[in-house]
Simulated assay, not measured.
Amino acid sequence: MPELRMTDRVERDDLGAFVARAVRLDSQAVVRMRNRPDSDRMDVWAATPFDALSTRSVVGSVEPSDLSLSGNELLATLTVAGGEVMDPGAPKDLLWRSELPPATGWKRVDDLPARLVGEVAERGIDVAKENVGPKGTPPASLLDQEVFTVQGAGYDVKVPLRCLFVLSGMGFLVDSPAEEEIVRVSATDSWLRLDSRFGAVVRRRHALLPLLL
């Protein structure tokens, strides 16, 4: 039987907030948890409707060490059952369909002012409300608009609006941020990552080419 261990109530509340946001964005959200080697922390991942992953780390561990779960079931466990040792629900590993980025090899490209990121996200959300597609989400042409270009560490990284939607939707952006508050932009050859104080958004920089048979 799967087992989730989190002795710190604050960490449990943080995980609960993350899962609640993921479920709000996607009612069928699947959450993946992976223990960090030689650490008391685990990384938590959730796919989003914006073709980008959201993630944050919390103090705790899960058994087995890499486990995917129903977001709704996990949220019920955290908010109703609680406790330091919990049954997070039945494994849903077959429902996780997103590739995870590498744990190493990231380079810091540059930092963006959090206030500016928040302002651009708000403007994008206002436009999206007026251009909702048939599935209830904004059209890809809007989501793929490149709102920032960041250069550094040998990379030229373009940040699409969809990543800012995830930062906002997951509650990762600070309300009324101070001037020094930043969103860090990191990259590998294949991946983009935006880190804010409360979590991160990760997305492939280039689409995978289909296999030709």
Rank of each mutant, 00 (worst) to 15 (best):
V23T: 15
T55Y: 14
V120S: 08
V109W: 05
S57H: 12
F50P: 06
V183G: 04
I182W: 03
S70L: 03
R41T: 14
L143F: 05
D195L: 15
D38V: 04
V159C: 08
P177K: 11
L212N: 10
G118T: 01
S186K: 03
R123F: 11
L209A: 11
D13P: 02
V30H: 01
L100S: 06
A52R: 13
G71N: 09
D87F: 04
S98Q: 13
E84L: 02
D111P: 02
R97G: 05
I125C: 14
P139N: 06
D126Q: 09
A29P: 05
V147N: 04
L164I: 10
G199F: 14
R5S: 00
L95V: 08
T149Q: 15
R205N: 04
K107L: 09
V62F: 13
Y155L: 09
G133K: 00
P2G: 02
R34P: 15
E180K: 13
R34E: 05
D8L: 00
M1A: 14
S65Q: 11
G71C: 15
L213A: 12
S68D: 00
H206A: 04
G199D: 05
L142G: 08
N72E: 06
M33D: 15
M1F: 14
A47D: 12
T79C: 00
A114H: 01
R12K: 03
R24A: 15
H206T: 09
L74Q: 10
S168H: 15
F172L: 10
G169R: 14
G124Q: 09
G171E: 14
E99G: 02
F198N: 14
T104S: 12
R24F: 02
L74A: 07
L211R: 14
D13L: 02
R5E: 09
L213Q: 10
R5D: 03
K92M: 08
G16V: 01
A207E: 01
D26C: 08
G133R: 04
V19Q: 08
G171N: 11
V117F: 15
G16Q: 11
R9C: 03
V80C: 03
V58R: 14
L194S: 12
T7I: 01
S141W: 01
P138K: 02
V159K: 07
D14L: 12
D111R: 06
V147C: 00
N131I: 00
D13Q: 09
V10C: 01
L4N: 12
L116E: 05
G171V: 04
R97P: 02
T149M: 13
E130Y: 11
R34S: 11
A200D: 03
T104H: 10
L208I: 01
E181C: 07
V62E: 05
R108D: 00
